[in-house]
Amino acid sequence: MNRDEIILSGLGGQGIILAGYILGKAASLFDKKNATHIQDYGPEARGGACRTQVVISDSKISYPYIDNPSVLAVMSQEAYTKYSPRMRQNTVLLADEDLVKLKKSKHASLFAVPATRIAQELGRVAVANIVMLGFIIAITKVVSVEAMKKAVFESVPKGTEELNMKAFDRGYSYGLEKLKTVKGEEK
């Protein structure tokens, strides 16, 4: 049984929940796998630590929670401090390098991306979550690129599709480049 357990985390307002939703939707509707998406809900949505859990599996998912993620993406220092202790030996850690100060020596499989800076270059910091999604897909391949593109296109606010597709592509190609050069040994 193949079960991917992905935690996306950061601050309320960064679009973490939407990113998790898009990931789950892509896996479920377009890659035809089973997927569950859970959001931590409450005051966090308005500025505090924020987390979303996505489980993707070939078989039925009876337990939608993640104790030890196989993929952890962090977009804030607090999220890194809070969730990195939950990593397994082989957890793939992805981080926004401008927002998180990483203890690089501790992680066997670490990939960093300036997601927020790329989003700024594109003209809207709000698409940092989609840059991060592109990056995650390039590195981990938990969902197919085609499925992700469809899900991003359908799920972002009307009128922002083009910008978000661009953001996804930038994150994705940054990830492919990263794989060529470092292969997860950023130490």
Partner: peptide
Amino acid sequence: IVGHMSEK
């Protein structure tokens, strides 16, 4: 949980 969980 069931109310806030997304699934197909």
